[in-house]
Amino acid sequence: MSLPIARDPGLQPERTALSWTRTALVVAVNALLALRTGLLHGEAWLIAAGVVLVAAASAVAAVGTVRRRQLEAGVYAPHPLLIMAVAAATVAAAAAGIASVLISEPQR
């Protein structure tokens, strides 16, 4: 009869928790860029994208807090839908950030 081997995660849980924080921060920065550009240029769609991204950044930060607690408890695998949702928020943030940079001055 063999005994179960204890898993030594090393620093992986800490790195994973930090990555959730970085992702939330990046989404929040892109949200602020989108909001700023939308307000300066009167682009309603960019303002709406910024508001959605603020909510997404808050959700990613909340999920990061939950994941940090799960990692401390020894739950290492996140739910696949969670990963897809965060990936979608990251892609949306990148698209809004690119759009906010590419918006040109309105013609006068």
Score class of each variant (00 low, 15 high):
Leu39Gln: 13
Leu33Tyr: 00
Tyr76Lys: 12
Glu14Ser: 10
Ile47Asn: 09
Arg108Glu: 13
Ile83Pro: 00
Thr37Trp: 01
Ile98Pro: 01
Glu43Asn: 15
Val86Met: 12
Met1Leu: 14
Trp45Glu: 08
Ala96Gly: 12
Pro13Met: 06
Val91Asp: 11
Ala87Cys: 10
Thr23His: 02
Ala89His: 01
Ala73Asp: 13
Ala49Trp: 02
Leu35Pro: 00
Gly97Ser: 05
Val91Glu: 15
Leu35Lys: 04
Ala85Gly: 09
Val101Ala: 13
Leu33Arg: 03
Leu3Asn: 13
Arg15Asn: 11
Val27Thr: 00
Ala48His: 09
Leu40Pro: 01
Ser100Asp: 07
Ile5Gly: 08
Asp8Met: 09
Trp20Asp: 07
Leu32Gln: 02
Pro9His: 10
Ile83Asn: 15
Ala92Tyr: 07
Ala85Gln: 07
Arg15Phe: 14
Pro4Gly: 06
Leu39Phe: 12
Ala55Arg: 14
Val51Pro: 06
Ala49Met: 00
Ala24Ser: 15
Thr37Glu: 14
Ala49Ser: 11
Leu81Ala: 12
Val52Phe: 01
Ser58Phe: 04
Gly74Glu: 14
Val91Cys: 14
Ala55Pro: 03
Ile47Cys: 09
Val54Lys: 02
Ala49Arg: 06
Pro80Gln: 10
Ala28Ile: 06
Leu35Asp: 06
Ala6Leu: 13
Thr37Pro: 05
Val54Leu: 15
Arg7Thr: 12
Ala93Tyr: 07
Ala57Lys: 03
Thr16Ile: 15
Ala57Trp: 04
Ala56Gly: 07
Trp45Phe: 10
Gly64Ile: 01
Ile83Thr: 10
Ala28Trp: 06
Leu71Ile: 15
